[in-house]
Amino acid sequence: MPAPYTGGCAGGAVTLHIAAEAFGASQCWCRNCQRICGGGPAHVAIFKAGDLAISGALRTATGTADSGNATHLNFCAACGTQIHGGSAAVPELLAVRLGALDEPHGLSPKMILWTSEAPPWAVFDPALPQFATQPSGPAE
């Protein structure tokens, strides 16, 4: 499906509208993503932050990535649904959780990151490129 995208949290308190197309989507098995995603990988699509319009109350958890960059994860204050996250290194971009987008949205992961931190039972789509950590090079 082309943009715009709509979405929201599980409980309905947060809604989102995304005006423009995603740059790409990925699946991430880093340990932190497993924690905030119930034990499996996170799935995100990358959008320009300025293309997102959100209504409803979000709460923010801040942290520091292995790179040293400050990160922020934003979730619904009422039901905990993870909505999006980002890094101070690329403030113009936001990683929106695929689960927060209404279906059918047509977005799917195109690469698998941090397989080195995946549990032994993880299965990976053999058609997708896999990275033990994350791909080198610029984020955009």
Partner: peptide
């Protein structure tokens, strides 16, 4: 169990929940 119900996908960032 691994659960792919739509509500779990929302809660789990787009993939399945593992309970």
């Amino acid at each position: 169990r691994q659960c792919w119900c739509r509500r779990c996908q929302k809660m789990a960032g787009g993939g399945p929940a593992h309970n």
